[in-house]
């Protein structure tokens, strides 16, 4: 009866659970996303190009990508400083501030959006003093930038924090024993070993900001060509029943986010080969 020698596994249920997983995945994720790409194929390359290069679309993409990049840069610097303070120093309220970092993850985007707007509006707690200095934040690109900084900060902190915690203290002691001063130790030994995590955090914050909608649209002002982000333009095109336009912009943004995922995966792999897992 050696015919019973089939490909069997030690635990039951693989066929059933894998089948259900693939079905559910297809129904919820793959078919809808495929529909998006199919819709784009209804456009000729010329039409596609025309939509993407229209002034309003180009500007929306520029605003989304440009401000996201700037916000991610700020997150990178401030995130590093925050991680350093939280991991290396003791100060009153340290654990509270550590917990606070997660709020932008946890707060629904619409709530963040109205709160930031209220805060930076001309009569807001921060908007009023800034207005006296002649700086207008709400309903300008600066507002978009602020909202993007808000939602991006946890990505950098939570990616870098465990790596800094796990950093072997001996490498610092070794650097010091070799005569390096603190400045050299930090900038030549510690920060370089954080680079993969820093870049990963940067990429995640950037990607999140590019696609962000809820926390940005309230404070943005949404003036075409000036403070209109790409996700909002998609919504506007949809409400005008210009599905083709919405789809074309969406596809470009989706592809960009796939590129970022790939980059992040590469970064993770790179980090592994550089710093082998214990």
């Amino acid at each position: 009866m050696s015919t019973a020698v089939a490909r069997r596994m030690s635990l039951p249920g693989f066929g059933l659970t894998m089948g259900l997983t693939l079905t559910w995945l297809s129904v919820i994720i793959l078919i809808p996303l495929a529909g998006l790409f199919l819709k784009t194929l209804e456009l000729s390359p010329g039409q596609f190009w025309e939509i993407l290069t229209s002034r309003r679309t180009l500007n929306a993409l520029k605003i989304s990508f440009g401000l996201s990049f700037a916000a991610a840069c700020v997150n990178l610097v401030m995130g590093t400083i925050i991680v350093w303070a939280l991991v290396r120093y003791r100060f009153p309220g340290r654990r509270l501030f550590d917990a606070i970092v997660d709020i932008p993850f946890a707060l629904p985007t619409a709530v963040a959006g109205v709160a930031l707007t209220q805060l930076f509006a001309q009569k807001g707690w921060l908007g009023a003093p800034l207005a006296e200095l002649g700086i207008k934040v709400a309903f300008t690109p600066i507002g978009i930038f602020i909202a993007m900084v808000f939602i991006g900060i946890p990505f950098v902190v939570r990616t870098v924090q465990p790596v800094l915690i796990d950093l072997d203290p001996e490498i610092e002691e070794a650097a010091a024993s070799l005569g390096a001063n603190r400045w050299h130790t930090v900038f030549r030994v510690i920060l370089p070993s954080l680079i993969p995590a820093l870049l990963t955090g940067f990429a995640l914050a950037f990607a999140r900001a590019v696609g962000e909608y809820g926390s940005v649209i309230f404070i943005a002002g949404n003036l075409p060509n000036v403070s209109e982000i790409a996700p909002l333009l998609i919504v506007i095109r949809l409400s005008e029943f210009r599905y083709a336009d919405a789809t074309a912009i969406a596809v470009v943004m989706l592809l960009a986010s796939f590129v970022i995922i790939l980059a992040v995966n590469r970064l993770q792999r790179w980090a592994q080969t550089r710093i082998p897992a214990h």
Partner: peptide, 25 residues
């Protein structure tokens, strides 16, 4: 990676795909 996809899709696009499937057009 496929299971992770929704994490990397803009929420607006997550809604859009269903409009493309079920919307009037």
């Amino acid at each position: 990676t496929l299971i992770d996809l929704p994490f990397s899709v803009s929420p607006v696009i997550s809604g859009l795909v269903f409009v493309l499937l079920f919307g009037a057009q």
